[in-house]
């Protein structure tokens, strides 16, 4: 009788263990209860869809000029109006998503990966490697990101989307290195890491199998929020004239076309609303993820 009960208990416990989801999955699921985060997710999904299908859904070819219909306000034929060359702003905003959305995601994946690797090594190995990596991070952080990005774009030979992307990647990695280093340092002193060392696991194995999985929360939150920052930075470089070059329908470049055209308010407003809606949605989702992953920060 007692053995049977013990076996039952074991079964119940193992079931419970199996049902226990990872904190990250739990956090994702908890977003369902956060209305702002859901709005954000829906808007982001919409923008992804637009980026993928712009050629199918845009009413007009984005660079098609029609001088006889230039500078028209929003109307039934042109929802967002037309610019000084008679191009359809609605179509251009839709096409703009094909530049900004992938640019934001790719730069953050790239700069995040670089920062994570450098930060993990700095924190785990320590010593002179730590010193070199973190001083390099200090230097990059001493420059305002937009100004350093401008300098990098300029010395790389001037405006192009590729140069702007490289500049953003080179400018944003240090924050990831810092966050990662901090997380690794905090986890390194845990008993389970000491235990892994004691049973002879290699340092690489300890880093990859035992430490890195514990650092996903802060990094994922930061990446979510930073995609928005990268999109704004990219659009900013294009606004200045150091990113996407005409006639590319890039949001920042489109806002630049509205400089000193005070009467034609629709020129800059719609591309700006596109940027705001993407970044705001990322903020909602990132904020909700942070709350869900780190209860201590709730409501901060």
């Amino acid at each position: 009788m007692a053995t049977i009960r013990a076996a039952e208990n074991a079964a119940v416990i193992s079931q419970k263990v199996r049902r226990e989801r990872s904190p990250f999955v739990k956090a994702l699921l908890s977003l369902r209860r956060n209305p702002l985060a859901m709005v954000g997710l829906v808007v982001l999904a919409l923008w992804l869809l637009i980026a993928l299908t712009a050629p199918l859904i845009a009413p007009v070819e984005p660079n098609k000029q029609d001088i006889s219909h230039r500078l028209q306000g929003p109307n039934r034929a042109h929802f967002f109006g037309t610019d000084d060359l008679g191009r359809d702003i609605f179509s251009r905003v839709l096409y703009g998503a094909r530049i900004s959305v992938p640019a934001g995601i790719l730069t953050i994946l790239a700069t995040g990966t670089i920062g994570i690797i450098l930060g993990a090594f700095a924190g785990y190995v320590g010593g002179w490697l730590d010193n070199i990596i973190m001083r390099a991070a200090d230097v990059v952080l001493a420059f305002p990101s937009i100004i350093l990005a401008m300098a990098i774009t300029a010395v790389r030979g001037g405006p192009s989307v590729a140069n702007a992307l490289v500049a953003i990647i080179l400018v944003l990695w240090p924050e990831y290195a810092r966050v990662m280093r901090g997380a690794v340092l905090a986890l390194k002193s845990n008993e389970y890491v000491t235990a892994a060392e004691a049973i002879g696991a290699t340092r690489w194995r300890i880093l990859v199998r035992h430490i890195l999985p514990g650092t996903d929360a802060p990094i994922i939150v930061k990446m979510t929020l930073d995609i928005g920052a990268a999109i704004i930075l990219m659009a900013g470089l294009s606004f200045i004239g150091l990113g996407a070059v005409p006639p590319n329908p890039e949001w920042g470049a489109m806002i630049n076309a509205s400089v000193a055209k005070f009467y034609d308010w629709w020129l800059g407003t719609f591309p700006a609303l596109a940027i705001i809606s993407v970044v705001m949605s990322l903020n909602f989702v990132g904020d909700a993820l942070r709350d869900a992953l780190d209860p201590r920060l709730r409501g901060r």
Binding site: A229, G236, G252, V259, T269, A272, M280, N283
Partner: peptide, 18 residues
């Protein structure tokens, strides 16, 4: 504070000017 990070400052400047 959320809006402050989402509105590009170059658009805000143009809007204020207008």
């Amino acid at each position: 504070s959320l809006l402050g990070t989402a509105v590009p400052i170059y658009y805000l400047a143009l809007l204020a000017q207008t």
